[in-house]
Design a protein around this nucleic acid. Structure first.
Lengths: 352, 352
DNA sequence: TGCCCAATTGGAACCGGTTCCATGCTGCCT
DNA sequence: AGGCAGCATGGAACCGGTTCCAATTGGGCA
């Protein structure tokens, strides 16, 4: 119970505290004989050094904070896994901060890096403003952004515009002209997720390039979640001229689209094509055509980048080259929820 | 950049460091006038106290470690969310340790509580042995178990045996006699998850009670995951006398059962009844009949219990009453994957 | 044999807070 | 007017490590 300290060990081994410290830190400046005596004393006393004290005197805390919005969403869980995998082999602890509101976002971005309790910051999908970035620098805390961008910070991203454009382009190539977009609310995007804008832009761009006029009715936005997506899909299908294809902002929302189609006895992909985004693990189950982004790897790369920054003590990786901006590739994974537009799609026989 | 310390603030405000500390800790022993001067100095210098130093001198680290196996599985994510919700309002940091191997399990359970970097331990699904529990006590680190049991520690659990028995009982009541069990491997259960044994026992118990002989062929075990479950289901359906109902160890595995059925054009629940376990969020999507356990709440309750333990400085909640063992209720949620056993089930027409 | 250098080692300062204890001061009571 | 209580405050020790620096010792070389 009474905590045994380095001084107890020193006394027991009949050496000075500095020597014990050397043994603990595997300094070569200790004779074998002394080392063994110290190790014996450590074993006998069942001593383990206080990480806190070590942190204070070393000025390093051996911990990394991960700030993630809605970490329960599948895409974040997979990224988190990538981060954890890298961190767990590096000796750094992973401190998790979940963000679901703007207030909490501000609190995390401002308060968390203070107090020198962490050596690095990994931020998912949230974009710090210039003030906050300045503060990171002032505090000497290296930060890496995943799925977000800031010119002064290393980032790991994908090209959401291009990924979406490719997907919608594919639908167009299949002959679709009435293509809907179901996404998270664009207008009120309190946490300012960049993909919300970018994917919508990619959709518009693909339409433009093909000379297909944008139809506001086909653009639906609502809360994240399959239930909401299902609801929006029903609205879409109630239109006098319903779409023949739907691009969904995320796989999760695509599942809602699939369910709505099923509820109406619409054949997918015969009567409705559906594309998602992310390629989360269960997308394969649904045979969902989707835009794959390397979720797990984005987390891993981000964590690696951060480790680099923390090693180079200037706090910025790749000296004098400025922060690295990594753009990972996306890939259209074609499964079974997309097909050529039906030539005759009016005699939709209701199965149930 | 140069870190500003409490001494800088003291100098700036023209007071002693003790006074600054008092202001920081909202001690009433400071005059209003002095307090304001100090606060002004803090603001001017943009000072923020070092959490590490505070931890060292106070002996509290304001952090809780959460040790979770396979934290990416949906059931753990939901529990984690419950934990996070409670912890984030309490001022404690959440340090996440993911466990996927026995080696890592041992490392986490032994090394993590050392080093006084945390005030409490929340362990999911892993059962520490007596030595480890003794060490927690010796180190003065309160620990709470979620989805696991140890007599000396507070625990939050469900009754897996009863939950499963109720589910299988329900299948029996529907007239099923050929009831299969698809689960995680019983024999090699390296992390010793208790539900793996308990749910199987519940299955056997329900069979016994109804006087239905256990058929080893109907008991399939394999790795966790819907792909593996799908495979096992196909084996089951290839039997000369295939089961008419399947109890799956988890919802995720139940999804694999559903897929196998779909691949064969078997109508669920017309020709095959399926029950899962957990009631993860997406189970509703599949209209899966399942045994609901309060995942989110189990995390929240566990975290609350831990906070109680940490407050009462003897490290054990509810003084002199011994550790609390909370058993949360399970509930059979009947949706659309279960039905009366088909009276004629041989002319299964293959749809595709 | 004497000297210098390298290898070991111990002491003490330091990291940045908290807190015990002593001190100065004011004000009230007798 | 003297004394004491009590508030407000500053100094210094302390938490448990790391690390600089000085000291001791032994061996090699001139």
């Amino acid at each position: 119970m009474a905590t045994v300290t380095i001084r107890d060990v020193a006394k027991r081994a009949g050496v000075g505290i500095a020597t014990v410290s050397r043994v603990l830190n595997e300094s070569p400046l200790v004779s074998d004989e002394t080392r063994h005596r110290v190790l014996a004393a450590i074993a006998e006393l069942d001593y383990s050094p206080s990480a806190v004290a070590r942190r204070l005197s070393r000025g390093k805390s051996m911990a990394v904070a991960v700030i993630a919005p809605f970490f329960t969403r599948r895409s974040y869980v997979e990224r988190l896994q990538g981060i954890e995998n890298v961190l767990s082999t590096s000796g750094y602890d992973l401190i998790l901060y979940n963000v679901e509101t703007v207030a909490r976002r501000d609190e995390c971005l401002r308060a968390v890096p203070r107090g020198e309790r962490l050596d690095g910051l990994l931020i998912l999908s949230l974009t710090p403003d210039d003030d906050e970035v300045r503060q990171f620098a002032a505090l000497g805390v290296p930060a890496v952004l995943i799925d977000a961008y800031h010119p002064a910070l290393p980032t790991v991203q994908i090209d959401d515009v291009a990924g979406t454009r490719t997907a919608v382009q594919y639908l167009i190539d299949l002959g679709h002209r009435r293509i809907a977009y179901i996404g998270e609310t664009l207008d009120q995007n309190p946490l300012k997720f960049q993909p919300i804008n970018d994917r919508y832009q990619g959709y518009r761009a693909a339409l433009d390039e093909a000379g297909i006029p944008f139809c506001p009715e086909y653009h639906r936005q609502g809360k994240y979640g399959w239930r909401e997506a299902r609801h929006m899909t029903h609205e879409l299908l109630d239109l006098p001229e319903p779409p023949t294809a739907v691009f969904a902002y995320s796989d999760t929302m695509a599942f809602g689209v699939l369910e709505a189609a099923q509820q109406r006895g619409l054949d997918v992909p015969g009567q409705l094509s559906v594309i998602g985004f992310d390629d989360v693990e269960i997308a394969q189950y649904f045979r969902l055509t989707t835009v794959r982004q390397p979720l797990h790897e984005s987390g891993a790369r981000g964590a690696e980048l951060l480790l680099e920054c923390m090693d180079s003590d200037d706090g910025v990786a790749s000296p004098a080259v400025g922060p690295r901006h990594i753009v990972q590739p996306t890939e259209l994974v074609i499964r079974s929820t997309t097909a050529n537009v039906a030539t005759i799609d009016l005699n939709a026989e209701v199965a149930y």
